[in-house]
Design a protein around this nucleic acid. Structure first.
Lengths: 242, 242, 242, 242
DNA sequence: CATGAATGAGATTTCATTCAT
DNA sequence: GATGAATGAAATCTCATTCAT
């Protein structure tokens, strides 16, 4: 397993440009050649911006560099997105949409409560590992007190199903006696996220502080097991002293 | 209880001016406007820089503004610290020194294992709440992959005692049968930190995402209890199936 | 004849604006105020920089002033040249290219050895007089130990023909008995340059030291004759004592 | 023979500080301890300034660095010399005084004309080699059009004897038939200076331009011989066509 | 749709000089 | 005579953004 963080390429999203073979003198579809180019440019910009903002934050990223990486002119970037902050908002929305989409695909309802929970924990940890850009972008946005996220209206609806899904699993687990009672699903989700997110997000400082390489394959494996144990340990019902 | 994060004043560190009682009794004017006291100026700059970097990050903070807030000339800032990045390093060092100093003062050795652990969890949660600048600065530094922290040599030694203290508590707890065996102290500390740090650090985005005010006094109280439960739940020994 | 050194305008290079006839015949407005012509802007910057560096040296010249004189924004200057030093390198290269270009145009091969030498000496003296910016720039660069010139790769090839031309003249002169034998062409060129360059370069201090105006038309005429005599006197073959 | 130009130490003037053996707890002479310290500080500043201005020019040298090298406080430098330009003037005066002093010590009157001339040429070449700071400072001053030198009143009188000495040698040489007639002593002195000064002053650019190391011991020896030949060749009387 | 040219405002940093003791 | 602290002004350089085509 290779380390998930690489300098030159932070994200593992589907590359926007790879698909277009330098577009020959004629576009493939005669129906909508203009639109396809426009979409492609937009996507390329968004992609480059995601990388740049993740790497350097909102203040640190350079519009010049984003345009260069996207292979388009700066003016076009402004044409499509208005300004740097609006571009950042677009990047955030797309980023959240991706994680929630992947989560939905888990179909947790099909599994027993304990297994469903294990799967959720693994997915979350795995996603954070494979998507360092998610962590970096969310950190950046927190530095700005979620000022940009607050502008998005699609977000609430995006997250409602997640909470409901967890609530449902917890309910089934309590009913079958494998989970303790009274667990708040939001609280639990935050905890699940915490245990992986903080570790990865702060791996660099923690690594220096504790003189350990926290990103080696071995360290990450140990962390995965630890997280599963913490969640499972917490969810165990209290011992019955009858 | 008021929310701990305010825009104009992020930190609650001891004010720099107070610290300077070193000038002997023969200090001429009691209300000297132009300072001419190197220590005081240095401290004022460090203080202002801590606020600014915490609020806006390394890239976002402005040297001009830091000097203004410190009440000194920009040139003096450069005279003392060399450049913006070196100032950031100085801020980080001082910030870590403060939290580790406060931690040492807990004297956890005096308490029973369970109580010591509760105290450590409470301290950590409490410190993060009262010191949003710590969280923001560490986040910023992680954005830079701990590049600046790596330059500091005093850090390792600063953190060694922390790990040893936790290891000792765990050992006593296992011996007296109240803790499970085989817990890695570093892993556990990261978990304790995670549960509070992530919640506070990401309170803004999480608040938008889950449409909840996570920083209300009530929410924070609930989180405190949840964290204690998670840690305690995890540390509980396995049920004896005899 | 007016003194060749004037404060406001050191160079007599072909003005940048004149050079831009490249924009096709369909150039809309004849007196476009905002240029939008990259070549013209580049040339204007180079031109202004040549003046400024010649007048004040690398350290003394001001980027602000160069941009102002070129009629462009500072940012554009940085866009084209990167930084002040790189601009200085570009100025040096262009400056050497001009003198070597003018020299080539002499076609010394067409003349008898003695006449060719007289022409070369006159050209050199004349060029130094008419191009005080050459002297000033080269002096500046020597102050920097040719650090910038060493970065240029085009220089060697630029100077090879010069040496070969002198060697050829010397050869012919020895063959026809008008020049002494064993003269090193590089050594001779340095001497020819010395006699004029030093006089003009140091005219100000020498003028003060010897209480003479060395830049009057009369003084300059006298120096020209002196230089011709020195070179001719040196090249005379040894007296044959047969 | 060691190379005359070294980066760390440009001048070979008597070091100001070497003489003072760290000045023990008691100054040597009880009579004027204060004065001696003052002189020492002044000399140290002048010395450091000479190095700095020679290395970097007036604009390039830093007052901070001069004070540091002199081992004194910046304020003291200002106390003694007023400002940077005045310090530069003081450096120039001292520099010219040194070369004229050394020249006077030659006692050229004692020698036959041809030998006296050879000695003068050798001295000039030798002095320039051993005192690169002289060349650099004079170049800097020429960049400023002798603005500072013009402020010094002691200069004219300093140089009058030099011209008279050369005139006297020339006169004797013409009388004894070894020199040509009608040579202007000022013109000749400038030529003698040119041939060495330009070579050394421009050694860096010429070295790059001609791809030769002009500062090797061998190159410098060749130049010395060439200069003697040029001067001697020029001074030879015209061939008698009787 | 797309671009290269150009810019204004403001960022960090430098440096000669003065102040207070 | 000497110093460390402090500064104002100005330098180089950056960067988000707009213009003209």
């Amino acid at each position: 397993m290779s380390p998930p963080v690489t300098r030159s390429r932070l994200s593992s999203r589907p590359a926007a440009k790879a698909a277009s073979a330098k577009r020959g003198s004629h576009s493939k579809s005669l129906a909508a050649p203009k639109t396809r180019d426009a979409d492609r440019s937009r996507a390329a910009i968004l992609d480059a911006a995601t990388d740049a903002f993740a790497e350097l934050g909102l203040a640190g990223a350079r519009v010049d560099e984003i345009a260069r990486r996207a292979g388009v002119n700066k003016a076009l970037l402004y044409h499509y997105f208005g300004n740097k902050e609006a571009l950042f908002v677009a990047v955030l929305e797309a980023t959240y949409a991706r994680i929630r989409g992947a989560e939905s695909a888990l179909d947790l309802e099909r599994f027993e409560p304990a297994e469903a929970m294990t799967k959720l924990v693994d997915f979350t940890w795995g996603y954070f590992q494979e998507h360092p850009e998610f962590i970096h972008l969310v950190n950046s946005e927190n530095l700005h007190r979620a000022r940009h996220l607050a502008q998005s209206e699609r977000l609430h609806e995006m997250h409602h199903p997640l909470v409901e899904r967890i609530r449902e699993i917890l309910g089934r687990g309590v009913a079958s006696g494998v989970f303790r009672m009274g667990v708040d699903p939001v609280q639990l989700y935050i905890t699940i996220a915490s245990l992986g997110y903080f570790y990865l997000s702060n791996a660099h400082t923690l690594g220096v502080v504790f003189s350990r390489n926290l990103l080696s394959a071995q360290s990450r494996g140990a962390r995965r097991r630890h997280i599963q144990e913490v969640v499972a340990g917490y969810l165990r019902p209290e011992i019955d002293h009858a």
